[in-house]
């Protein structure tokens, strides 16, 4: 029972990281209707920047995270402006391939700058762990931090998209670009803003991911990126609560599957569940089904 609880909590922690990454995917998809495959690599860049800030500049972790967020925000805006904006009218496959090009670029740039050797990520948050059941169940500070950050980000984003003018503009653009433009919304700036928020979240996710799994390499971001994308689809792509639920469920399934079924097949299990869910709910758990009109 205690073991099960431990796996469950680890799963929620991993799932929270997926959820934060998935938020970036889902917001960008909702607004720009593109699969941003470079998102996973922005996570890796964020983690590297936080790592350098802590290891070489010996900044305190909070400042390091803030620095990573600022750098990733800038990176997100630059990527969007240089690579994706010229393709706004192009076929979706062209944008997809460009995103893959950006992903290769970031991975190889990181390889050149930081080398292929894995870096060991330092602990960001060093408050003692919580011990329950006479020390049998240890919840590490990273786990708590991850789950709390996830809740804070979720509440913040819901308030932002629901209450603020910019958030409303974002929802309007994702609903109908043309109509939004007619209402005086600056579509390009709104899309840039979405990329900026998504990339800032990616930086947070990168730091959280690497403080739980402290191995940092140029390819660190790609697998969590794919899984977070899966999580976004699982929850219904374009939906913010969907990304959250999808991410957490995916993390829990992965950890429980690895613990109880097969270590090697943990990933396969995640994808199998995704397939089954999509067969019964083709638009994901919380996605709105799109009616086809003649």
């Amino acid at each position: 029972m205690v073991a099960f609880l431990r796996f469950l909590i680890n799963g929620i922690s991993l799932g929270s990281v997926y959820a934060i990454i998935a938020l970036g995917y889902t917001m960008v998809y909702g607004i720009a209707k593109m699969l941003n495959f470079a998102h996973g690599d922005v996570i890796m860049v964020g983690a590297y920047i936080a790592f350098c800030a802590m290891a070489y500049l010996s900044l305190p972790p909070i400042l390091a995270v803030l620095l990573a967020m600022v750098a990733c925000t800038a990176l997100g805006i630059v990527i969007e402006g240089l690579a994706y904006r010229p393709l706004r009218q192009a076929a979706s496959l062209a944008v997809l391939i460009t995103a893959i090009g950006v992903s290769y670029f970031l991975q190889n740039a990181a390889l050149l700058i930081w080398g292929a050797n894995p870096k060991s990520f330092p602990s960001v948050f060093s408050v003692g762990a919580i011990r329950l059941f006479e020390g049998e169940l240890v919840i590490s500070s990273e786990t708590i931090l991850t789950i709390i950050s996830n809740i804070v980000i979720m509440i913040g984003l819901t308030l932002f998209t629901g209450r603020t003018k910019l958030g409303k503009a974002m929802r309007a653009v994702s609903e109908d670009k043309g109509a939004a433009e007619l209402m005086g919304i600056n579509v390009n700036r709104t899309i840039s803003l979405t990329f900026a928020i998504g990339s800032a979240l990616a930086a947070v996710a990168g730091v959280l991911l690497c403080s739980t799994y402290p191995i940092l390499m140029p390819t660190t971001g790609s697998m969590p990126g794919i899984k977070a994308f899966t999580a976004a689809v699982f929850g219904g792509i374009g939906s913010i609560p969907g990304a959250m639920i999808g991410g957490i469920l995916l993390g829990v399934i992965e950890i429980l599957g690895k613990a109880y079924i097969s270590t090697e097949l943990g990933d396969a299990l995640v994808f199998a569940v995704l397939i089954i869910v999509l067969l019964f709910k083709p638009a994901g758990l919380l996605g709105r089904p799109v009616r086809e009109k003649v």
Partner: peptide, 18 residues
């Protein structure tokens, strides 16, 4: 591989440039 990535992005941008 960095150049490969840049070539890929530039080709996509060029072929979709109006």
């Amino acid at each position: 591989m960095l150049i490969y990535a840049i070539v890929l992005i530039l080709v996509m941008l060029a072929t979709n440039n109006p």
